[in-house]
Design a protein around this nucleic acid. Structure first.
Length: 217
DNA sequence: ACTATTTGACCGCA
DNA sequence: TGCGGTCAAATAGT
């Protein structure tokens, strides 16, 4: 299964590389002409991004890249779609401390097999086109910077289960690693058009776009 | 008053 | 038992 998907991903990358080659041979200034003729609809930057994403996606299919990778520009893991833990059936446990917060057990995402992918960029974690609400922050062992935990603002309104973890991994230049878990099911008015063309973790072999203006890759 | 953030407690897992 | 993820009361902001 991975082989078939990897081949498709490589074929897709090859097609983008061919488009990029045509673009380079014809010259960037003729890009608009090509668009008119329907030869290509993407800019050189977009095409290179597509090719790189193709490589990344292919590697991730073979688990060479994982969500924990420290070197990826962007990556995702194809895991079978699976519902996140039910909100019901909380295992109640009597509190051992003075504070009684009468809470249900926290939802451990690690045991759920959901789509994850990582993006590293200089852009502000909050400027990715979605409405996020911070729900936690943790000091991570051997990390200089704390990890911030965000969930979709519309989690309760629309049941959107998308979450992300954001951690600063470099000071100069400032670099943030954002790990996404699941995808948005909400109809978020903040969604930019760019995300309409982005990676669909379930159905598509297409990848999401990372801006070349924001990194050196 | 309402919403968002902060932050310490709680909990599951390795 | 320690770490990482989440909860939710307290607090801040509008």
């Amino acid at each position: 299964m991975e082989n078939l998907m990897a081949v498709k991903e490589l074929e897709r990358g090859r097609e983008f590389a061919c488009q990029f080659r045509r673009l380079m041979l014809r010259g960037v200034d003729q890009e608009d002409d090509d668009k008119v003729k329907g030869l290509t609809t993407l800019s050189a930057e977009d095409l290179v991004a597509k090719v790189l994403d193709s490589f990344t996606n292919t590697l991730s299919l073979f688990n060479h890249y994982s969500a924990d990778s420290s070197i990826t520009t962007s990556s995702f893991s194809h895991l079978p779609a699976h519902s996140v833990e039910s909100h019901e059936n909380p295992k109640t446990k009597s509190p051992t401390t003075i504070k009684d917060r009468t809470r249900s057990s926290p939802k451990k995402r690690k045991s759920a097999q959901i789509q994850t992918w990582v993006e590293e960029s200089k852009m502000s974690p909050k400027e990715d086109g979605y409405a996020w609400r911070k729900y936690g922050q943790k000091i991570i062992l051997n990390s200089k910077h704390p990890r911030n935990y965000y969930r979709c603002t519309y989690k309760h309104d629309q049941g959107c289960e998308a979450i992300k973890h954001v951690q600063k991994i470099q000071d100069d230049p400032p670099l943030c690693r954002t790990t996404y878990f699941g995808h948005h099911t909400c109809t978020n008015p903040l969604n930019p058009l760019i995300f309409l063309d982005s990676y669909d973790p379930i159905n598509s072999t297409s990848a999401f776009i990372i801006s070349f203006q924001n990194n050196n890759h």
